[in-house]
Design a protein around this nucleic acid. Structure first.
Lengths: 191, 191
DNA sequence: AAATGACCAAATTCGTATTTTAGTCAGTTA
DNA sequence: TAACTGACTAAAATACGAATTTGGTCATTT
């Protein structure tokens, strides 16, 4: 029963980052939580930031899997991309790690955290971009720049989910999904 | 030739806020620039923040006037709202005051500046909202929530103008205008 | 060969002395 | 006497050295 020290470290760091944030967790703390000498951490990760990056890339995988689960082949592109984005927003809201990192990014501006959040955003947009490309190839939507389209979809979702509720009462999942369809798919023009 | 001390103060403060930002300009500095005793400032404005608010509301009026100038009755709603938003983005880029305040909001998070920037954003959205309502009444666009629509238009414009160029080469005015039409007016759905 | 924790330089925090600044108001000016 | 002023003050910001903490290393242990 050889214990996987690498995994112990990642788990401990995830727990600590979730509870206290990136800056406020020390490597000593991670080592203690993982029941491992501090030096051991550095045999797997060359520094604290790399440890965060590992955790972020696991998070990205988890988010992708969660989004993938909500999509179904027989549904339209609109329905699927809407489900995926809605699921990703939910994911963000229910995971302490994403909440904490988002907060740390805005409130403290920790560079490593900003880098990693940017990476996560890029990964999401890249993921959506692939869905847009597939839909375009299938002729389900108009020809457009897939990268910009994915970017706009993501930004619209963030705006409706997060920015709107800074000054108004928050929108329900159904309202958001309806607005997403109206603005990006059917459009405001008549007929 | 009675000099308008109030105006002198506003001008001096505008100049100083533009050059050094809100936090870095002192009331002594404003008084000196305006050739006025410091006490005089407080006969017109009860504190530094109120002085900033006065300047911001003048800025809002200027922005509205600039936007209004670009619009023309015989053009479509899309064309007009696009012109107005494009003009507002230009305005932001060419006025030292807006640049400085925007920077101070992000980099220092000065509360008074954040409040005032929020006010400016709200004013712009409110302005767009009125245009949306008119267009809706005229039957130029589908029925929709005008506040949310204005909000989305503004956020999309910010996304394409500012957020996009953080990771990509910036989009031209024409590209943005075209994307604005595609996503919000014609929509991605076919026919 | 893998793991460790005492160790170190660098960074951060803390405590405090010093300076700066927003706002006031008694006195001056016109 | 009404508008204006700038010396003044309390509070906030800053500067700065001491003390502590922390990321990362490496000689030693297992």
């Amino acid at each position: 029963m050889a214990i996987d020290r690498r995994q112990l470290i990642v788990d401990a760091a995830t727990k600590s980052f979730s509870l206290f944030g990136y800056k406020a967790t020390t490597m000593d703390q991670v080592a203690k939580l993982a029941n491992v000498g501090k030096g051991t951490i550095y045999t797997f990760f060359s520094n604290k930031e790399e440890l965060l990056e590992e955790i972020a890339s696991r998070l990205i995988k988890e988010m992708k899997a969660a989004a993938e689960e909500t999509m179904e082949d027989h549904l339209s592109f609109y329905e699927n991309v809407n489900r995926a984005l809605a699921r990703l927003m939910e994911f963000r809201k229910e995971h302490q790690l994403t909440i904490k990192l988002f907060q740390e990014e805005k409130e403290m501006g920790t560079q490593a955290v900003m880098d990693v959040m940017m990476k996560i955003e890029s990964a999401i947009i890249h993921y959506i971009k692939e869905k847009v490309e597939t839909a375009m190839d299938k002729g389900e939507i108009k020809v457009c720049n897939p990268e910009i389209t994915a970017f706009v979809m993501f930004k619209l979702y963030i705006a409706l989910n997060i920015d709107w509720e800074k000054q108004h009462s928050s929108l329900s999942k159904d309202e958001i999904s309806h607005l997403f369809e109206l603005y990006l798919f059917t459009g405001l023009s008549k007929q």
